[in-house]
Every structure is written in C-alpha cells, then in structure tokens.
Computed example of a mutant assay.
Amino acid sequence: MSRFEVTTLVLAPPPIVFDASLSVDVHASSMRHSNEQAVAGVTSGQLALGDQVTWRARHFGLTWHLTSTISAYIRPTYFVDEQVSGPFQRWHHAHTFEAIHHDDIDATLMKDIVDFTAPAAPLGTIAEVLVLKRYMTKLILRRNAHIKEITETPLR
C-alpha cells in the first residue's frame, strides 16, 4: 500500500473550498486533460454522504472506469471518497479543510491524504512505487490548483 499527502493553501473560506471539492463538474473540469467524465451515479452537481459516481478517464493510453462513494462527510471540514470498483485494489482519499487566517483573509488549508494499493502484486506493487504514486500525486496537485483558481477568483 502507498500513501501520499498534499497540502494546499486556498485563499477562500472552508465552506466554499469544501463545496468545490465535492462538485462533479469542478472535478471533471480539473481533469479535462484525461477526458475524465462522470458516466453513472451522480453525474453533475454536488456529491453528498452515500453518493456514488462512476468516472471514465484515459490514463496511460487506456480507458479506465472507477466508481467511488462518499463514505464520510462532515461539512465543511472533512469527507472521504473510496473506490467501490475500479482499477485499484484499494483507494481511500480523505480530504480535510482547516480554517485559517492568512494575510487578513479567511483561508483554508486543504489537505488530501491518499492511501491506495495497485492490483496484481508483485507487479502492481512495483508499478505503485515506480509510477503510480508520482502520477497520482500530480493528478491531485492539478485538481487542487484548479479548485484554488476557481474559489479564489471572486476574491481578486
């Protein structure tokens, strides 16, 4: 199993950042480069506790489907999405949103903690270490940059 964490400072209050992070449309927009689309379950709007969404995306030249559920939800501070079915043996993504005051602005320290396991050990374990951890970290960084951009824009 691999784990990585990403922390992002967003100059917007936690409720705004939390809601953007649970928006199917915002997620799809942030992953345009991989043509990621919601194809089943909740396919637009806001996700809530117990909701499921199936994503179709293109990574490594292949089309993948991943169905996740929102398994924990405490607005506006915490939620978890977990894979129900898809390419990983395990995918658990915890999101936290901490209210902070930064340069006289109500801001959010957004933290992603991702635990995942690739299938097909031992080859999957090798791929996890050599490729997947770095690749998945870059995807989360891209997503967070998009969330930061759209939630901070009204403040500019």
Rank of each mutant, 00 (worst) to 15 (best):
H146Y: 11
F60C: 06
E152F: 00
G41I: 05
G41W: 03
S34C: 14
S71D: 14
R75T: 08
L130H: 00
Q37C: 03
S2L: 10
S34R: 12
D51G: 10
L62S: 13
L11E: 14
P87E: 15
R143C: 04
A120D: 07
S30Q: 04
I74Y: 00
E128R: 03
F60L: 14
L22G: 02
G61A: 08
Y78V: 07
M136P: 01
Y78D: 13
Q46A: 13
T137A: 10
S44N: 15
H27L: 13
R58M: 13
S23Y: 01
F60R: 13
T96E: 15
H101L: 12
I105K: 02
A99F: 00
L155S: 10
E149M: 13
V26R: 08
T151A: 10
S85K: 15
A12C: 06
D81W: 04
T96W: 01
I100C: 06
H59Q: 15
I70G: 05
I150Y: 00
A120H: 09
F79T: 09
T54C: 12
H59R: 13
T108R: 05
A12T: 04
G124T: 10
E149W: 00
G124C: 09
A118D: 08
A121F: 05
V26G: 02
A48T: 15
D115V: 10
D103K: 09
S21R: 03
S23G: 08
R156K: 10
F79I: 10
G86Y: 03
P76N: 13
L22H: 05
P13V: 04
V42H: 05
Q46R: 15
L9K: 14
T125S: 11
G45R: 09
H92M: 03
T125V: 03
V42R: 14
Y78I: 07
A38T: 06
V10G: 06
T117H: 02
P76L: 13
A107V: 02
L130D: 03
L47Q: 12
E98W: 00
M1H: 07
Q83F: 07
S68W: 01
W55S: 03
G86P: 06
M110H: 07
F116Q: 06
Q89Y: 00
R143W: 01
P154Y: 03
F4E: 15
V131W: 08
E98L: 06
R156C: 04
A28K: 06
V24W: 06
G45V: 10
